[in-house]
Amino acid sequence: MSRALPDDDVRISPLRQRLGRLTGYWLALPGGLWLAIFFVIPMVYLLSLSLMTGDFINGFSQTFHVSTYWHTISLYHDQFVRSIIYAIIVTLLTIVLAYPMAYWIAMRGGRHKSTYLLIILLPFFVSFVIRTLQWQFILADNGFVLGTLKHLHLVGSDFHLLATPVAVICGLTYNYLPFMVLPLYVSIERLDPRLMEAANDLYASKLQALLRIVLPLTVPGIFAGVLMTFVPVASDFVNAQLLGGAKTTMIGNVIYTLYLTNNDYPAASALSFTLMGALLIGIFAYARALGTKDVMEAAAL
């Protein structure tokens, strides 16, 4: 709507034309300001904080000390690697669990699609902490799962799940499953069902059609789902804190403790930036490997 057509009788003044051309920017302004104030400024501040030295009592001063980074990485190397490994496992688990769910809802949900989606989203109506605490209850040493199993002598009396990686991964998988289901559902739902019929018609069995047609065309959905689970899972601290123990501490817990308990702001900021950098590099490498641009173009049509 920037310019009147030559044969258009309605004349638009040059000023209106120029303002009109700016419409898009005007519309983006509130969101842009919001981001600038509440995202960019804290990020810049955090970055500068990570390069400071000092302590909480005597105050921090800007010294551009990069050594904080190396120092924290070597100190919390284990938790760092653990977080990435947990995030990879959880992401893979959510894909395996979410894909059939999303596929079923999109293809067979019929007119109940939104009901099923609502059921999946229902846990979100309960506080994140409470949800995770419920898992503490479920997995407790004498909770109804382990209690029953122990009573039936299916597991030893000293068997426990809480404070193990299994508990943390279970909790994380449960909490982040909807973030995988939704993008997968969206990308499967908009597939033309005729494509599957065409594949079947061309001698591909249901499984072959799934592998050769559905899966490649829903790669953008998988990509979006991975972004929405991997990144928050890698920096999660609630699950490790409530369900884990000393051996399952994740980098999120470390940052939390450094910042709020030890008040070592530069170390916490440096770790946050390291994590962010690692995640960005990982995501870009992943996008490259998947050739997402190509696939996204295809799926958009």
């Binding site: 033309d192 005729r194 494509l195 019929e197 065409a198 594949a199 018609d201 061309l202 047609i213 490649p216 065309l217 696939v295 295809a298 799926a299 049509l301």
Partner: peptide
């Protein structure tokens, strides 16, 4: 042993 030409063509976009 029959093949179909669909109204919407249903060509594989990828």
């Amino acid at each position: 042993d029959v093949n179909t030409v669909f109204q919407s063509y249903a060509l594989f976009p990828h």
